[in-house]
Structures are given as C-alpha cells and as structure tokens.
Nucleic acid binder design. Structure first.
Lengths: 262, 262
DNA sequence: CGCAGACTTGACAACCCTCAATTATTGTGG
DNA sequence: CCACAATAATTGAGGGTTGTCAAGTCTGCG
C-alpha cells in the first residue's frame, strides 16, 4: 500500500492534472475513486488467478477535464492507465512540434505501452472529453515479487494486439486511397462504440478533422471532402462532429481493391 | 526438457523448414545447434537473474534456406524466435493476396510478437537469406510456474520498443515525401548493420525494391527512381542490391520539413 | 543459351496537397 | 445576453508528387 501511495503522489505532479491532489485527499467522499484488483481484472477481462495475495491493492482513479494532457513525451513512466470513462488521443510529437495521432483510446483500453521500455513515455496523451482513468503502477506487475501473473499475461496479449492493430493502420496508410481510409475509420469507430454499448449508427466524433487526417495520413481538407462525398452518396449523414451511418455496407464495399497482382 | 522436445517437434511440422528434422537428429554433430539460458540472455541483453532453476533448458536452433517461409498467418504459435544469423522479412497478407511488408528482422531481433495474443501468428515470416533462428517456446516464459522473470520483463520492453518503432514508420508513411522515406530507410538499415558489427557504409540489400516500396508505402518504381536520384546527387552509389553510402549527412539533411505550423 | 525475375527509365494521368475564402461553432469578456 | 475573437469545418481552384502503364536492360539459373 505504501508503494501505491507513493506512486499516486508522483502522478499528481504531472502537468494538467493538478486537481488529482484534491480528489486524492477527498477520496473517501467520492464513489468509484478507487478500484480493487477484482474490478480491474474484470475490466480487462482477466480470469481470476493467483493474485489473492494482492487483494489489498487499491488502484487510484484520476479525473481530467477535456483538453488536459495526462502525460507528455519524456515524462517519467511509473504507471500505466486504464480508461474508465471518456475519450482520449495519443500522439507522437516530432522535434518541429508537429503531432502525428497514433490512436484514440476509449473505455476499457489500456494506455501507456510506449513508456514501458525506457521508463519514460515516448508519446503524448490528451483528453478529448472529461475522463476518468485507473492508475496501474508499474510495480504492480513488474516487480520480481509481484504475483499479478494473470495481469502480466493479459498485458502481453494486449500489447501484441496493439502491435497488430498498429500494423493494420500502417497497411491502410501505405496502400489504401483516401476514401477507403476514411470509410474504414468510420466503421472502426462505429464498432468500438458498439462494443461499449453505445449506438454504432449515430455518434459524436470527439476529435477534429485535423486529428482524423493525422491519424490516417491525410490532410484535414481531404477528410472533410471525403465525409461530404459519403454524405452525397447517401452512405452517412454529417453535421460537424455528429455522424450518422446510414449504409454501413456501402462503406464496406467502397474499399477499392488495392491494385491486384497481375 | 520434455516440454521443450515436444515443442521442437511441433515446430518441425511448419512448412518450409522440413530440414529441421534432420538437423534435430544430428544435433550433437553440429556446433551451436542448441543454446542454453545464459546464451539467450546474453543475446537479448538480459542481466542474469533468478532463472538459475531453468539452467537445464536448451533452446533448439533451426536453419532455413533463403526464400523459406518460417511461419504463415494462421499458423499456431507455440514459440517465438530470436534471429541468430541471416535476414528476414515479416509481412501481412490481406485477403486478396497482397502483402504489406512490416519489418526486416536481423541478427539479435526477437520475432513473433504477433502470435502472442491469439496463440496464432497473424503475419508471415520469410527468410531473405539462409538463416539460423533460436526457438523460444511460449511455455518458457508464459507458464505460471515459469521462473524466467528477467526474460518476461525484457520481452515486454522489446514489445514496447517494437510498438514505438512501428509508430515511427507510421509517422513516416503518413507525413514524409518519398525522398525522405527512402533516405530514412537507408540510414536505418545502415545503423542496423553498424550495430551488428558490419560496415555501415556499404552493404547488400537483401530485399527487393518491391519489398522496400511496400514497407515505405511507395511503389517499386518510386523507390528505384529515388535511389537513382540520390546517386545522381552523389549521396550514394547504387548497383542493383549493392548500396554504398557516400554522404550520410546529405541523406539526413534532405528530409524535407513536414509542413511547419503557421 | 534462353527464360524468369529484378531493376531502370520514360510519359502521362490521377489523386491528393496547398492555398484561399467563407461559414459555423465555441468560448470569452463586457 | 450579446458582441467579438478564436477555433473548426466546408468548399473551390490549381499544381505537384507519385502511381500507372509500358518498354527495355540486367542478373541469375536451369
């Protein structure tokens, strides 16, 4: 427990989440501001295992407002995070200050793989809405005495999944035309919303056109034009950040075949 | 030991490496066809730890000829591999048969992260030269009784590294023009050769122009044209697969700035 | 020697980026 | 509450980078 307290205090020092200190002190007055091992295992879909000895663990929740930076490239990594509620974006910022969006984490996603290697985060994590995260200190699973075997295994699975998923995005950017990329993006978002129990037919995008463009390797104008094009074809309805998917099959079909081999 | 033998026999059944059976039987007659824990830890730069109890482990080496497939998407994953010698490519093959190159593993690299999640490989691994791999059965690090704590930790670090590295390739494909991508590719290959103790100034590319193009999100013609262009500028010399880097600084400079923010 | 695969080079067109102007939305201060 | 500024989104025109198609050369191998 002491280790956890220490880690939590360090997290408080991060930029943009200064309000955590307040929540930390008032923890007992708020519901859901700590999770136990069982709850965390449930969110990550880990079957209960030998972690009984760690049942005393409590994982702190932190809250941030829309626009806040949870961590920035270079920050020390002594914990990773599980999205408990809200929407975020991860990005890599090059030395000229240009940011490339890497992912849009949502409820249930585990964040912070980029910090595990060097104990410092490589990327930047920004809240696209008010968010609530569960803090998982590195010590919980990385100490040689740690009994969180099921967690470690699941962590590796999730990293493997993230790697393959990133490779698919690379495939998209490398081979598919703009229309197919935007279509796949919409379908992927739709599926994520469905998995979270929300409507997969109509939803609000939390990110800007520029974010989407950066994620897909396109400019914001191309994204906007493509969305307008889809709307003209009757595949979707668009009103700023509001999206309604009218003909999902149309979107799936329109993926132009990537230059078949001769 | 019995577990290891079993795993080895399963690996033998993979396509393209039928000769393993032969090597397996003749193991004692060949040098270096088995590695122990200490040797594997040295290759992966893991400090010795509590794995004394696993010292009895022996990791089988397998050899394949250039062009052989070590595994194919869908194959069962009961082991991952360390490149002991040679050059390979990993690729993802879509349902139309088009392959997207994901990486070019070389000596010291750990391969097979894509199989950890679902116990089946998602990608395809092909030898670009005669190769020798060390087989690391999943059981070695994934069993709840496994003592390979140092290995597991290093594995997570390497996966984290692979994730970030893949994100950088994504950044390249999404934002940089063709010339910058090819330049970065050459410099990256050069650095890898240097790290392996080979010359970083002149080397043979083991992959085709098409492979490079697929990796960078370009066509083979664009790759060829860009290399010729570099040669005309005096940055490199090119003769088919043979590359000589004359002016590495020139290559580094020519990375066009990705549209600075206004 | 001949063939298949790999590489080079050219011409042309298409897709997407750049630049620019306008409209819509959000946030802020009087 | 409204006016104003700042951010976000839409749409158009034009040009550049790169893909497509095609022809020719080089290399390695049976």
């Amino acid at each position: 427990m002491q280790i956890l307290q220490k880690t939590s205090n360090e997290v408080v020092e991060h930029r943009g989440i200064a309000e955590i200190g307040r929540y930390s002190r008032m923890a007992d007055n708020f519901p859901r501001l700590w999770s136990n091992v069982e709850q965390v295992y449930q969110i990550l879909r880990i079957e209960a295992d030998d972690s009984m000895g760690t049942d005393a663990y409590r994982f702190q929740h932190i809250k941030s407002r829309s626009g806040a930076r949870v961590y920035t490239g270079g920050d020390r990594c002594d914990a990773i995070f599980i999205v408990y509620a809200g929407f975020l974006k991860t990005s890599w910022i090059d030395k000229y200050g240009n940011e490339k969006i890497l992912d849009f984490p949502m409820k249930g996603d585990l964040i912070g793989f980029d910090g595990i290697e060097s104990k410092a985060f490589k990327n930047t994590l920004v809240a696209l809405s008010d968010i609530e995260l569960i803090v998982v200190p590195i010590e919980f699973f990385n100490g040689s005495g740690s009994k969180a075997h099921g967690f470690r295994r699941r962590l590796m699975e999730l990293m493997s999944q993230a790697l393959v998923s990133g490779q698919k995005v690379g495939y998209m950017m490398g081979t598919l035309p703009a229309e197919a990329r935007v279509a796949k993006f919409l379908l992927s978002i739709s599926q994520k919303f469905r998995a979270m129990g929300f409507s997969d037919k109509s939803f609000h995008l939390r990110m800007t056109r520029e974010d989407i463009g950066s994620y897909l390797g396109l400019t914001l104008e191309t994204v906007s034009r493509t969305l307008s094009g889809f709307a003209r074809c009757g595949f979707i309805r668009v009103d700023q950040k509001y999206i309604e998917i009218v003909d999902p099959d149309g979107l799936k079909m329109l993926r132009r075949l990537p230059a078949l081999k001769r």
